[in-house]
Nucleic acid binder design. Structure first.
Lengths: 245, 245
DNA sequence: GCGCCGATTTTTGTATACATTGCGGTCGCA
DNA sequence: TGCGACCGCAATGTATACAAAAATCGGCGC
């Protein structure tokens, strides 16, 4: 979102295709021809081909046995499993951070973000700065998990978080959130404080358990979003991909 | 290994490069020029480029900021973290299998493999069929984890297992194994039975904990391998990549 | 003598032409 | 009329030519 400048054609094709699939511009299961996509985005086949291979890694496309690609079918069960897995990997990162110890200044940085989240939440949910919360929530998760100091774990965490609707802030994208989700954010913030405290205190098991339970909040949010799907489908990227009930 | 037939040039390039890097034919950190690699394997740049992108995903190469690739530096800490992460994801798969229930015939299939492993192990470690054990061990892990019935989890598990020296049978490749590793296999087999039993009995927490502890055996094996590194480096793919002590 | 700037060269990024494979339609034969 | 094989087409897989960007090296100025 941030870098709209087209540095390379590959990146331009990647972003264009990703947006297109995420927004539901292509039906799940629909076959994608390289030439058709190339013409559509006005770029030659070579970078488009690279972009499609990348999107396979991101879980948005599937390779077809005979060659070529199709838009991936994503079920509610897939999203549930993605969220569960993200919770597992975040739990690992936090446990590692707790066991191995984190630098005090980096813990302070996390605490600072939490204070700013408190400000964004405000005292009453009607005055909540929802957009700011989403940004700060992402920042906190990034900052906290990075305390594990493991490139390997962080790499996989990033990958898992990029699965459709699996990211920590996946359900916080729309400007007007569902009431139930807004309300859950106060609970989430309690989780945040507890996770940071557990990491600070070298309580690895607690940190891991909290991270896993915290991810479960997303699963609850998923239910809410699906129930009032019509209202919010346009606002939440990736939701259009999900088939079935 | 199984498919030596060069179906496409891309696959040929992929396997050639992977073998080359795994065997230590290229120094870690060494920059790889597309043209040089293309000439070396006798294939044009296009499929070679695809193969290199794939190897980045596999964790064997790194993108350079300016563009291009270099052989990835892998530390012992990276391998340790990879093993830990594999244990976490296997644990998730087994817990899911236990919680959601698995088909009896598929549990029987796992049990059959374990019986064959017993045969391969034999009564005394001097008569062990080590090569068969390695194959059956991989097969058991595949079969057991697939009980979770989650494409999402299995996909990430496969990816994590493909990290250098992170696979369940990564240290069982050489024909002549280190004595300490051979001895550990009897213990591993006890783990195998316990994991299967836990999944069968819907004991999710136990299954998960066992999977994590089971993966830790690989970490012990890693220590053994590194201590007698000179003897076994040629036999274990990926070991040549590991730098530092 | 040292440092900076610019040109050259090497490298990656892109486009396109060509090869090849798989699929579908149609025609022929039973 | 139905089944099967062959031909043609459209798609991906590959090679190569070209463009653009970056690194290096040399020269020039200070």
């Amino acid at each position: 979102m941030a870098e709209l400048e087209k540095k390379t054609r590959f990146l331009k094709a990647l972003m264009a295709l990703r947006e297109l699939v995420m927004a539901g511009g292509l039906k799940p299961g629909e076959r994608l021809s390289e030439v058709a996509v190339a013409e559509r985005v006005g770029i030659s086949r070579t970078p488009v081909r690279e972009a499609m291979a990348q999107l396979v890694e991101e879980g948005l496309l599937d390779r077809i046995s005979t060659g070529g690609y199709c838009v991936r079918q994503i079920t509610v069960a897939d999203v549930v499993d993605s969220i569960e897995m993200r919770g597992m990997v975040e739990g690992l990162a936090l446990r590692m951070a707790a066991e191995r110890g984190a630098a005090p200044e980096r813990l302070s940085a996390c605490r600072t973000i939490l204070d700013r989240i408190d400000d964004a939440l405000g005292e009453h949910e009607s005055r909540m700065d929802f957009s700011t919360y989403a940004d700060l929530n992402s920042a906190f998760h990034d900052e906290l998990t990075s305390l594990c100091n493991s490139p390997i774990v962080l790499r996989e965490l990033k990958r898992v978080s990029n699965l459709p609707l699996a990211a920590p802030s996946a359900f916080l994208q729309g400007q007007t959130a569902i009431r139930m989700i807004r309300r859950s954010l106060y609970h989430a913030q309690v989780h945040h404080r507890a996770m940071l405290d557990a990491v600070s205190s070298h309580e690895g098991a607690r940190a891991e358990a909290l991270a896993r339970e915290h991810a479960r909040l997303a699963r609850v949010n998923l239910d809410h979003v699906i129930q009032s799907r019509e209202e919010v489908e346009a606002q939440i990227p990736g939701l259009a991909l999900v088939t079935g009930v």
